[in-house]
């Protein structure tokens, strides 16, 4: 079809190039074209957070982003973060705390948690709940998710201090 456009972007570290219809959202592009089905769509209007991905370092709703808008960008999905093992401690904390049930919201939750935990300091429970305010979960009631994120924040803080002896006891 003549109205296809070419998009090239880096997804999970690999450059991809496809001819797509311009109306395809980034979410559909990731899920259907690239078969990266870890990213989910729950509302397709930017409310539920199941479709969150990282675009050039920022967490964005892939359902509100056209794939063509991501042309030239670097995208990272839950599959990429898993492969790079940068969220392994978050995933482990979610697993141990049972901070997921059906798991459909979980990739989006992990994106939000990853962004929050990439900032310095230990967020309060209120900070964590506030950060999760764009992620809808129907199963858990959220407390386990807050607990898991809080645990990783504390562990990372303790680990950072342990590896920086000059700060111990400060």
């Amino acid at each position: 079809m003549s109205d296809l456009v070419n998009v090239t972007m880096t997804v999970n570290g690999t450059e991809v190039s496809h001819s797509i219809a311009p109306r395809i959202t980034l979410a559909d592009f990731l899920r259907q074209t690239l078969e990266l089905t870890g990213t989910h769509t729950g509302c397709e209007m930017g409310v539920c957070g199941a479709c969150l991905v990282i675009l050039d370092g920022r967490v964005v709703h892939s359902c509100l982003t056209f794939a063509v808008q991501a042309s030239g960008a670097a995208i990272e999905t839950v599959e990429g973060l898993s492969d790079r093992a940068v969220i392994a401690d978050i995933q482990e904390a979610f697993h141990q705390r049972n901070a997921l049930q059906c798991g459909f919201c979980t990739p989006g939750m992990l994106m939000t948690a990853h962004a929050l935990l990439s900032q310095s300091g230990v967020p309060s429970r209120e900070d964590i709940r506030d950060a999760l305010s764009g992620n809808y979960c129907r199963c858990t009631g959220y407390e386990a998710i807050v607990d898991a994120i809080e645990k990783v924040a504390r562990d990372r803080y303790a680990g950072a201090n342990a590896s920086a002896p000059e700060e111990v006891g400060a």
Binding site: G38, V78, E79, S82, Q91, Q96, L100, L110
Partner: peptide, 17 residues
């Protein structure tokens, strides 16, 4: 903990969608 939750945490769930 649920063994089958690890798959979901890695984005490897297989939903009908």
């Amino acid at each position: 903990p649920r063994p089958n939750a690890k798959r979901l945490l890695a984005g490897r769930g297989r939903y009908v969608t």
